[in-house]
Simulated scan of single mutants.
Amino acid sequence: MIRYALRCDQGHDFDGWFRSSEAFDTTRAAGHVACTQCGSAKVEKSLMAPVVAAARQAEPAVNPAEAALQALRRQVEANSDYVGLKFADEARAMHEGRAPTRAIHGEAKLEEARKLIEEGVPVAPLPFIPRQKTN
């Protein structure tokens, strides 16, 4: 995951987490990166300082953003079913009433996610890779 410092055209600063630089570019081009304060989709990367680890630390510092992401991951995993690559089909079936409604998370290609949004299916991207995909 890559954390970018972002700034909207109104001058609001905020952070965003993306799987890769290409994922940021694709997501922004699709209009899915918006300012957390005003909602503007005119967002650019702002100047960032690199994270440099100290030579020796007795205890690793806890980054508040990373802690929040871990808490979000635990909440999602504890309260929803992982449906993997069947996410788009499952979400659509629930929206259309063909399947019982429940909380799910999984994976969808960008085009599948776009179609869900166009159809009015309530979905949102998660800022982390599912554990089932990590080694």
Rank of each mutant, 00 (worst) to 15 (best):
M1I: 10
M1N: 06
I2C: 01
R3F: 11
Y4P: 01
A5G: 15
C8F: 10
C8K: 03
D9H: 15
Q10L: 15
D13I: 07
F14W: 01
D15F: 14
D15S: 14
G16Q: 06
W17S: 08
F18V: 14
F18W: 08
F18H: 14
R19L: 12
E22N: 06
E22Y: 00
E22V: 07
R28K: 14
A29Y: 14
V33P: 03
C35T: 05
C35E: 04
Q37H: 11
C38A: 09
C38Q: 12
G39I: 11
A41P: 05
K42W: 15
K42A: 15
L47Y: 14
L47S: 14
M48A: 13
M48C: 06
V51L: 13
V51R: 10
A53T: 01
R56A: 12
R56V: 10
R56H: 08
A58K: 00
E59H: 08
V62F: 04
V62M: 03
V62E: 07
N63C: 06
A65I: 09
A65N: 13
E66A: 02
A68L: 12
L69H: 05
L69C: 02
Q70M: 10
L72N: 04
Q75Y: 01
V76N: 05
E77W: 00
A78H: 01
S80G: 05
S80M: 00
Y82G: 07
V83Q: 12
K86D: 15
F87Q: 10
F87G: 15
E90I: 08
A91L: 01
R92G: 07
A93G: 02
A93D: 11
M94N: 03
M94V: 02
G97D: 11
G97Y: 14
A99V: 01
A99E: 07
T101C: 05
H105Y: 09
E107R: 13
E107F: 10
A108D: 05
L110P: 02
R114M: 07
R114S: 04
L116G: 15
I117H: 04
E119M: 09
G120Y: 00
G120P: 03
A124L: 13
L126A: 06
I129W: 03
Q132K: 12
K133V: 08
K133A: 07
K133C: 06
K133T: 07
N135H: 12
N135T: 09
